[in-house]
Amino acid sequence: MSHANSNPIDHPEVQLASPGAYLVAYAAALGAMFLELWLVVAHVLSPISLTTAITVIALLVITVQMYLLFKLDLSKTQIWFTVSFIMTAPLIFMSIGLTIWMFITLMQRTMLPGM
């Protein structure tokens, strides 16, 4: 609790703000979205490859945005944020993964085939 940090502009997190990085991240998101839209509309891939391609592109964009927008890197000011973000990853994989598993088996056991 010192007065040295009372000016928000002096905070290291705020100083990381960079219009260039924001624009690149925005352009990357937009580009990826159009690419995925084209993949879906143009039917150039089989359903399985399409799902895989969309997932991979989405993960790439998320990674780019985490770095460019949220500045999640290993520097002294940011490492806490990066570590806590990475530590939520098992929760996300577990909750979504187990959910998919339980609902696939549920559908197999309760739905009529083909419906």
Binding site: L98, W101, M102, F103, T105, L106, Q108, R109, T110
Partner: peptide, 21 residues
């Protein structure tokens, strides 16, 4: 705490594998 939630609805009808986990 994050890995056990299905035990609130074991009777939903998920497979024996899911319920065992």
């Amino acid at each position: 705490s994050w890995t056990v939630w299905l035990h609130h609805f074991f009777t939903m009808g998920a497979s024996p594998g899911v319920n065992s986990y």
